[in-house]
Design a protein around this nucleic acid. Structure first.
Lengths: 349, 349
DNA sequence: CATGGAATCCAAACCGTTTTGAATGGGGGC
DNA sequence: GCCCCCATTCAAAACGGTTTGGATTCCATG
């Protein structure tokens, strides 16, 4: 059932039918009702391809994800971010196009998105530091919003991001306040922008308190359970073992907890742990009570905000860059406590 | 730069240019070369919407995910499955359209996919038992492949699935062979088809060995760490505590491990644990050595297979249902061992 | 020297919408 | 009764490709 068929059925021209269905004022209320009634009697749905072609709007948003090689980690927050964005798109009648493309081919991917006309805007995921993609898409001249930021990017752009630095500064400060003086950082890969900001926050907290930070206590790697476990085991075997650990994600946090237990120690008493909690729906940080003390910021909510921002840029046509900085909450759980006295003593001595 | 512009630039008709670029035989090799050269000199990309409209093929596959309400679990395997499918689509020049839609509106969603003409085929995720969607899409008459199966569906359809029953039967049999007689099952929600099959495998193994299975040892719920932990804690507090636990996913498995440790017991010695491992890239079951004894089947690989199957159905036009049943491997890790003698004794007595 | 056929190329129709520009009819003002 | 304007409606031209059904040229064949 095409528009033409429907028009013939009603004895009207395609023009009038189209206008009736799209709410234009030049059509009488009587015929509009007649058309609408017939439309859903016949179950008519406009063909999006044809409409897109005519209007120039694709009614779709593209998400470009870097294709992770076999051994690289698939971004674990992606599913939740997309779920949040998808909610917004669905309400606004937009589709979501996802393309997974190797790092080297990203340039072409954006250009194709534009020229193929399959999307009206793009969400950029997982920016690296000084990510070249930003300049690239800016040149292509298609609306986009970045989830995260790319330090050292020279062009202005729109983004939604969590205040990574502030979150980790607060977490670190909290541990310092509890008397901890040797704190380890288990961070994500430091080619990712968020990881760099988190380390900066970690260091800034030390500096603000005049406590030196030890480079040998800072680790970065793929955020797996194994990574958390192995680094913690190594740390606890050292004579100058830290009394607290901050982890960039809950997954290594679980490995940290395991290593602490294996060492015969207790989390929250012998070693304090703070994780960052993306509030992933499939990995909740406990139920009524949290499992870990955590900085929490919902990545699903970030997805919703980024989607709203992008749709607003597209529909308003106002491309002046806008930004949305989310603050993480600091949630207290059983995984932190005052620094053990023994450690504090030896440290002070 | 449109096809017409390019044609004018070359002094050729749009017909010839189109044919040259699409490899039709009716164009001389000389002009083809000239056209191709000009095309990528000008950076010409055909507009997909126009092409789709003309050819009737959308060159896109739709994935429909149930919109999880705030409290429901977002399917944790989704990200990896999609990554696998995306690889295949990218190679074949297809786009991936994802739409997240509430359970109640799924019917309309499929119909719209068809009539809007935005996709050539559909992948159906997370089928429930007797899932009504299967009949629905069959009626809509658009190629589709189901990831998983829906028991009690009366119409034949194409699917890619893991042999859930066999995997859990093997895991259970292995525990029985180790002397365990009271085995608990920590399963996913039993409105999901895979969960039902896994329970059947669990029960079949008992029956094959003539060991009774106790309904009070079977649990199903959202597969969170907390769920694994809480049920295990309750189990271990019972006088007739099980000596082994099978978990439907690694995430509750981690909670199971935590509860075992909290009870002062050791996993693999006092309580054996087998998990099912979807081989998720961001939640590997250990590194060189596994953390858990596990039934393993890569969900990313399933995504690749489903995508290949669907593309083949679409391009061949042969819609006779095809199926692909993947067998899980049983991987031995440190989380299992012979049943403790004490338990075995009291059981025998 | 026609004739047929292969090899190339092109004009025009088509895909299903929206949108432009014009036509039609009815009613109000004079 | 005439004119103008407004409210409706429509025919036709986009949008950017593909595809159908010829045209044209060139060469070999009889």
């Amino acid at each position: 059932m095409t528009l033409k068929d429907l028009a013939k059925e009603l004895g009207l021209s395609p023009t009038t039918v189209s206008r009736a269905l799209n709410g234009f004022p030049e059509v009488s209320e009587a015929t509009r009702k007649r058309v609408v009634a017939a439309a859903d009697a016949y179950g008519y749905r406009p063909n999006m391809r044809a409409r897109s072609l005519a209007t120039g709007r694709a009614m779709a948003i593209g998400h470009v994800l870097p294709l992770s090689s076999e051994h690289e980690m698939m971004n674990p927050v992606f599913a939740d971010f997309v779920a949040g964005a998808g909610e917004i798109y669905a309400k606004a009648g937009y589709d979501m196009l996802i393309s997974i493309v190797a790092e080297a081919e990203q340039a072409r991917a954006y250009e194709e998105f534009k020229h193929k006309g399959s999307v009206d805007g793009i969400i950029v995921h997982a920016p690296r530091m000084g990510d070249p993609r930003i300049n690239l898409i800016t040149e292509v001249d298609i609306p986009f919003v970045v989830h995260g930021r790319a330090s050292q990017s020279d062009v202005p752009y729109s983004w939604v991001d969590m205040n990574n630095q502030r979150a980790f500064q607060r977490a670190t400060t909290h541990l310092l306040d509890l008397g901890h003086r040797r704190i380890a950082l288990v961070n994500g890969l430091e080619n990712m922008d968020f990881a760099i900001r988190r380390r900066r926050g970690f260091e800034a907290a030390h500096e603000a308190r005049g406590v030196p930070h030890d480079d040998s206590l800072k680790f970065s790697g793929e955020m797996t359970e194994q990574f958390g476990h192995d680094t913690t085991r190594a740390l606890l075997a050292r004579p100058d073992a830290p009394t607290a650990i901050i982890s960039s994600s809950m997954i290594p946090g679980i490995g940290i907890r395991r290593a602490i237990r294996e060492a015969g120690l207790e989390m929250g008493r012998d070693v304090s742990v703070i994780i960052h909690d993306d509030d992933l729906s499939y990995l909740p940080n406990g139920g009524d009570e949290p499992l870990f003390t955590a900085t929490r910021s919902s990545v699903r909510d970030a997805g919703r905000r980024a989607a709203r921002m992008l749709l607003d840029i597209i529909t308003s046509g106002d491309t002046t860059p806008r930004t949305d900085l989310l603050e993480a909450e600091l949630i207290l759980g059983p995984s932190t406590g005052p620094a053990p006295v023994a450690a504090r003593m030896t440290d002070i001595s």
